[in-house]
Amino acid sequence: TSIVNVSSSLNVRSSASTSSKVIGSLSGNTKVTIVGEEGAFYKIEYKGSHGYVAKEYI
């Protein structure tokens, strides 16, 4: 489990790309479970499925 480190919110994306669809967002200090990594993104558990967040904010 890791913590989201942002002051406002962090986009959760459908794939490991800044141009991919935003499927949701997480607020600062939210706990997330990392299940993998791809480039500059972590794959996380998100709403019963998976999403991707930028590593620099975790």
Rank of each mutant, 00 (worst) to 15 (best):
K47L: 12
T1L: 08
S9T: 11
E56D: 08
K43Q: 07
K55I: 06
G48M: 05
I23N: 01
V53S: 00
V22Y: 05
E37V: 09
S8F: 11
Y57D: 15
T1H: 13
V53F: 02
R13I: 05
Y52A: 00
K21F: 08
S9P: 13
Y52D: 00
V6A: 10
E45A: 08
T33H: 10
S19G: 10
R13K: 06
K21W: 09
S19C: 13
V4S: 08
T30L: 07
S17L: 06
G39M: 04
S9I: 13
S8T: 14
A16Y: 03
G39Q: 04
S49E: 10
I58H: 03
L10H: 06
V12A: 01
Y46R: 00
S20C: 05
S14Y: 09
A16W: 03
T1W: 03
T1V: 14
E56T: 07
S49C: 08
I34G: 00
S15F: 07
G24R: 02
I34T: 02
A54I: 09
T33F: 09
T18D: 13
T30R: 06
A40T: 08
S27N: 10
I23Q: 02
V32Q: 01
N5R: 13
K31I: 14
T30A: 11
I23P: 00
Y42I: 06
I34L: 04
S14T: 08
Y57R: 08
Y42G: 02
Y46M: 03
I58D: 03
S25Y: 14
G51Q: 01
K21P: 15
A54W: 10
L10K: 04
Y57V: 08
A16C: 05
N5Q: 11
K47S: 07
I3V: 11
V12K: 00
S17A: 07
G48D: 09
K47Y: 09
F41P: 00
S7W: 05
T1M: 08
G24E: 02
S7H: 13
R13D: 01
G39P: 01
A40L: 11
A54E: 15
S25K: 13
I34W: 05
G48R: 04
G28E: 11
L26N: 00
S2W: 10
V22I: 14
I34P: 02
V35Y: 05
G48V: 03
Y57G: 12
S15G: 13
N5W: 06
V35D: 02
V22G: 02
Y52M: 01
K31L: 13
G51T: 01
A16I: 05
N11C: 15
I58W: 07
S14K: 12
I3A: 09
V32E: 00
S17Y: 06
N29E: 08
I3G: 10
K31A: 11
A40R: 08
I34C: 04
S27V: 11
S8Y: 09
L26T: 03
V53R: 00
R13F: 15
S25L: 14
S25P: 04
K43V: 11
I34Q: 01
T33A: 07
E38C: 13
S14W: 07
E45Q: 09
Y42F: 09
T1A: 13
K47M: 14
G39T: 03
G24A: 05
S2P: 10
S20L: 02
S9N: 11
G24F: 09
G36A: 08
R13V: 08
I34M: 03
K43E: 07
E45K: 08
V32R: 01
A16D: 02
V32D: 00
N5C: 15
E45L: 13
I23V: 07
H50V: 14
G36D: 06
E56L: 08
K47V: 06
G36F: 03
I23K: 03
T33C: 12
Y46I: 04
S27R: 13
V6K: 10
L10D: 03
E56M: 10
K21I: 11
A54R: 12
S7F: 06
G48Q: 06
N11G: 07
K31R: 13
G28C: 14
H50G: 04
T18C: 15
V53K: 00
S9H: 13
G48C: 07
I34N: 00
K55Q: 05
G24T: 02
S2N: 13
G48I: 03
Y52C: 03
S7P: 11
Y57L: 11
S7R: 12
V4G: 14
G28V: 13
V53N: 00
S14A: 15
E37P: 02
S8V: 14
H50E: 06
L10W: 06
S9W: 10
G28I: 14
V35H: 03
S9E: 12
V32I: 11
V12S: 01
V12G: 01
V6E: 07
K21T: 12
G39H: 05
N11Q: 15
A16F: 03
N5S: 12
K55S: 04
K55Y: 02
I3S: 09
S20I: 01
I44F: 04
I23C: 05
Y46E: 01
S2T: 14
V32H: 02
I34R: 01
Y52W: 11
S8E: 10
V35L: 14
E45P: 03
S14P: 02
S15D: 09
K43R: 09
T18I: 13
G51C: 04
H50K: 04
L10P: 07
G36W: 04
V4P: 07
G24V: 04
S14C: 12
K43L: 10
S19T: 13
L26F: 05
A40G: 12
Y46S: 00
V53T: 01
S14F: 10
S2I: 15
T18P: 14
E56W: 07
E37Y: 06
I58T: 05
S49T: 12
G24L: 05
S20F: 05
S15C: 11
T1C: 15
A40Y: 08
S2M: 15
I3R: 11
I58E: 03
H50D: 06
N29S: 09
S7M: 12
V4I: 11
E38S: 07
S17D: 12
V22P: 05
K47C: 14
L10C: 15
K55F: 03
N29R: 09
V35Q: 04
R13A: 04
G48Y: 05
A40Q: 12
I34Y: 01
F41D: 03
E56F: 08
S15A: 13
